[in-house]
Design a protein around this nucleic acid. Structure first.
Lengths: 112, 112, 112, 112
DNA sequence: TTTT
DNA sequence: TTTT
């Protein structure tokens, strides 16, 4: 271990995961996750603030996402921040930060 | 508490922090932090991979950064991921993800 | 910040919280929390293992526990490990490690 | 993943690790780790408080401890809380909570 | 752009 | 029992 890059989130999926199957049958799932925070302003009024996170899951976790996660699901996810460069339609270099999930825990009560 | 948005990093500053003083004497410090990971490939060969993170510190933590942190400093930082929109020079909407620090721990041995 | 002492748990209360009111109307809540882990043994068989944690909540968090938490509740809790000495009935010094909660997030779906 | 049981510490070893070799050449290292916290009291006076943690490392991490860690070493450790029962010399059942390390990062600047 |  |  040479450094630490850890992200831990509890929140809800904004949409159903988008799952792709790559060569060798490796799957990737992508979705955005909302985390909500509430805080008091100077006047004691409670406000709510939502952050959106771009989540990427690989292999077994992508399969779990495909099977069990959907819009609105509440999950705990642990992973790492990765910023990668890509070119947009105009050929301009842009950056996006994604969270590569390493552990996922489903937090919805089973509706039996 | 309504959700969890937590980031924990241990790494090194790529450059000295850039510190601005805003109205009411509030300070903001910005810098990038490298976290390093090593892993073995299929052939057992060890590789090293660096991720860069954009860090933002406010108020007291910005003052600490200004006083004590510099290029190469090793720190532990705990905070949250925030993605914000901004317009680039061409007026195109772009996004950047920053880590807003809430706790900072300096990990350099004091060179006495 | 001089060091890091952080514990993060997601699990279920083993019993209803025991709440005491101390002087100045300060409340303390205590309960045990089960975290469950599953793993495969050498033969690929899945096993389940439960760890029990002694949780202590003060003030506002104790009031939250009193009002909303009960046997079986699922929570996320963030806090610190504290080991304290006490004397048992025979006057022998013993030790117990408790997690002093600093953040609590209720993870049960509201049953509307 | 069915629950979360995570502990993260940054602190210093109180003594050199005690390393045992078990059957099949499996090693276990044990040591106590001090985490230090500073806080202001009602009068704005700064106080310092130390917590002691019992750390257990297995296999490769035990070997790393044996080779590189000693009294005073600063480390980051990530692991889980485990409480286990044992019988003391009088045959009375007692409990101890240990942190089973899963990741260790050495934070001492190399003194070249 | 860092560090080992 | 550590460290600053």
């Amino acid at each position: 271990m040479k450094g630490l890059n850890k992200v831990m989130l509890i929140g809800n999926l904004g949409k159903d995961p988008e799952v792709q199957t790559l060569e060798k049958n490796i799957k990737v799932a992508k979705f955005s996750l909302a985390t909500t925070e509430s805080f008091k302003d100077d006047k004691g009024q409670i406000h709510t603030l939502t952050d959106w996170h771009s989540i990427v899951l690989w292999r077994g976790l992508a399969e779990l996402a495909e099977k069990y996660l959907h819009k609105g699901s509440t999950i705990y996810i642990e992973g790492k921040n990765k910023t990668r460069a890509f070119e947009d339609k105009q050929g301009i270099k842009r950056y996006v930060t994604e969270i590569i999930g390493e552990q996922v825990l489903m937090l919805d009560k089973k509706e039996s």
